[in-house]
């Protein structure tokens, strides 16, 4: 599964994208798995109220299923315009 990070989430984790092998069934499980990896992930995901997620380029939720998902992206609330 392709995992992408943007803005300060990218900066805290220290890379824009990576391929991850996971059995996580939901976004929340994937976040728990990533946080357990290393401190930089733990720091990036310490306050999930300010992290948004997109599944295959559609805004989604923490509780969403990862079944069939190819691309997950984590980022802060958007600030364009």
């Amino acid at each position: 599964m392709k995992v992408l990070y943007f803005a300060w989430v990218r900066e805290r984790i220290g890379l824009p994208r990576e391929d991850i092998e996971t059995n996580a069934a939901t976004v929340a499980e994937l976040v728990t798995e990533l946080r357990a990896r290393e401190e930089r992930y733990d720091l990036a995901f310490s306050d999930m109220d300010v992290v948004r997620v997109a599944l295959d380029q559609e805004l989604s939720e923490l509780g969403a299923s990862l079944v069939g998902v190819r691309e997950v992206a984590f980022f802060p609330p958007v600030t364009g315009g």
Binding site: F6, A7, A54, L59, A73, F75, V78, T79, G80, G81
Partner: peptide, 10 residues
């Protein structure tokens, strides 16, 4: 656009 399009300003 301001609340849904994935842009971030620094």
């Amino acid at each position: 656009l301001k609340s849904r399009a994935p842009f971030w300003k620094k």
